[in-house]
């Protein structure tokens, strides 16, 4: 079907169950909270290659944080709670503990908990102390600019979803990028989701497997415009580029909402900027537990 001159494939995005957790990082200024969050989310694009998918959910006003300073909520998704906990430990230890003025708190509330400060507290070399206030426990680790405060645990949910996606095709690379950027920005307003790739956008969509031994994924040749004519291509003659938005969320509803918001933005703005078609990535529906049909997400 066509909406606003853009073709919408009658297909679905196939996504997978993941473990999702999160932290709230605060600092003396939003600038430094953002720096710590961005550093922690670095190299957190694909759970397969990077061990976890990490991104900024949103910025928090001082009224929304445990210590009344500006903050940023970072979400992290892994294959399992244990895998997420291991990634959390190293990322917080290397990227948040080290960042000037930072503090780190639970960013997801759930009954199931994983360690947050349980590892980094040992950096205190015995000088660390704990403070329990109500049902929350905080570690105070002495560091060179004062104290690094970190909550003992954070919540983890096992109903999280990774791999919601939109594939956007166009005949103008610059216009396509602008449109996709706008969609990512709109998705940023949806709570509990992240778009973990650079700027929220993937240009190197992958297929499972490769002709080379040891490579578990390789370029999605069907969507590579330069291979049209050589492979069984998914792109038509009017397409010169394809960009993908990958979405992870703490719930299936949040992923669906993010896809909906992203799709609407593309349909509202895309035609004038060379967007010709929107589709979604799937594996035939046999691998992922979650299917998001594009026609059900139309505005």
């Amino acid at each position: 079907m066509k909406v606003n001159g853009i073709e919408i494939d009658d297909t679905f995005a196939e996504a997978f169950g993941m473990a999702g957790t999160g932290v709230v990082i605060t600092a003396d200024t939003m600038k430094w909270a953002r720096i710590a969050a961005t550093t922690m989310a670095g190299f957190g694009t694909s759970v397969i290659g990077a061990g976890a998918e990490v991104g900024i959910d949103r910025e928090l006003s001082p009224a929304e944080t445990p210590d009344g300073r500006p903050g940023v909520r970072v979400l992290l998704f892994g294959f399992s709670p244990d895998a997420a906990a291991a990634q959390l430990k190293t990322r917080v230890g290397q990227c948040v503990l080290t960042s000037p003025g930072s503090a780190c708190y639970a960013g997801v509330e759930s009954e199931k908990r994983i360690g947050l400060g349980q590892g980094p507290r040992f950096f205190g070399d015995g000088f660390q102390t704990a403070k329990r206030l109500g049902n929350r426990r905080f570690w105070r680790v002495p560091v060179m600019d004062g104290e690094f405060v970190i909550e003992e645990t954070t919540g983890v949910v096992t109903e999280a979803v990774g791999g919601g996606n939109l594939l956007i095709l166009g005949n103008d690379r610059a216009g396509l990028l602008e449109t996709t950027e706008a969609a990512v920005e709109a998705i940023g307003t949806v709570p509990d989701v992240i778009t973990p790739f650079p700027g929220g956008i993937v240009r190197s969509g992958s297929k499972v497997g490769s002709k080379y031994k040891g490579a578990i994924a390789s370029t999605n040749d069907a969507f590579c415009p330069t291979l049209r004519g050589r492979v069984k291509s998914e792109v038509g003659p009017d397409t010169i580029a394809v960009l993908e938005i990958v979405i992870d969320g703490l719930t299936s509803d949040s992923v669906a909402q993010a896809m909906k918001v992203g799709l609407k933005t593309v349909l509202d703005q895309g035609a004038a900027k060379g967007v010709t078609r929107v589709t979604a990535g799937n594996y035939g529906g046999k691998l992922g537990q979650y299917h998001y049909k594009l026609r059900e997400l139309l505005p």
Partner: peptide, 17 residues
């Protein structure tokens, strides 16, 4: 003299409790 983040958390905890 120090500016301790934990005291901000304590003040907020008391306000909520």
């Amino acid at each position: 003299r120090h500016d301790l983040v934990i005291l901000r958390i304590l003040s907020r905890y008391m306000a909520s409790a």
